[in-house]
């Protein structure tokens, strides 16, 4: 099966004051198309950095990052922004919805970067809201929705432009168990029925259990299951 994500010998370090902190030390990772991958690891292990590199939000210091068939480590800022709008849907822990926009306008946001007409955008938004089961909440502002509903709107926003890859950063970290399970079932359904490749970072083992594969990151390296403490 073709790879949706391929990281090779990726090194990433940050400057903290005068000190250089190496977060990833030659990390390799391959995610086949259609996989639901959970990346786990302790705080500061580098798992969010991996997610940011895959989503084109951050750049590696060395190594190659190939996502959806494109070497995104060689794209410039504008190219990377265009690439993200075409290929990636983001789901954040705190939903990151625009408080001033209604649910449907939030969902519509990625479509504003396309050439779709208003009617076409509305049709896409209707489908995305139906997928997440919130068609009846379309005119509500985020502050009028529960946490679970907000995350569903965020998922609809991530889906609406039909990206190949969904990037989820602790998508259930702010939700109670029951709501978290509903969200994870939704993600699992999107993976299984629509074939979306999903890369999810989580601390939560129960959340990770919804994924088709789990990897662990520790001290900037992927840890094989047999090496885990």
């Amino acid at each position: 099966m073709a790879l949706a994500v391929e990281l090779r010998q990726v090194v990433k370090h940050y400057r903290r004051g005068k000190e250089m902190v190496e977060v990833l030390s030659g990390l390799d990772l391959a995610v086949p198309e259609g996989e639901f991958l959970a990346i786990m690891g302790p705080s500061g292990s580098g798992k969010t950095t991996v997610l940011n590199l895959i989503g084109g939000l951050d750049r590696a210091n060395s190594g190659s990052v190939t996502v959806c068939g494109e070497r995104i480590d060689s794209l410039n800022g504008a190219g990377l922004a265009r690439w993200r709008s075409r290929h990636v849907g983001f789901i954040f822990q705190f939903y990151n919805l625009m408080p001033g926009l209604s649910a449907e306008r939030n969902v519509e946001l990625p479509l504003l970067l396309t050439h779709l007409s208003r009617a076409e955008r509305k049709a896409h938004v209707d489908i995305a809201l139906e997928v997440v089961g919130l068609s009846d909440r379309r005119r509500h502002k985020p502050s009028e929705l529960s946490g679970g509903q907000q995350q569903r709107i965020a998922i609809a926003r991530a889906l609406v432009a039909d990206p190949t890859l969904l990037i989820c950063d602790e998508p259930t970290g702010d939700l109670d168990r029951q709501t978290a399970d509903e969200i994870l079932v939704l993600l699992q359904t999107l993976n299984r029925r629509q074939g979306k490749t999903i890369v999810m970072v989580t601390h939560d083992q129960k959340a990770a259990d919804y994924a088709s594969r789990q990897v662990h990151v520790d001290k900037g390296m992927l840890i094989a299951p047999e090496d885990r403490p």
Partner: peptide, 9 residues
């Protein structure tokens, strides 16, 4: 968030 979604500079 908008930049992450692909809105340019």
């Amino acid at each position: 968030t908008l930049r992450a979604l692909g809105f340019g500079a």
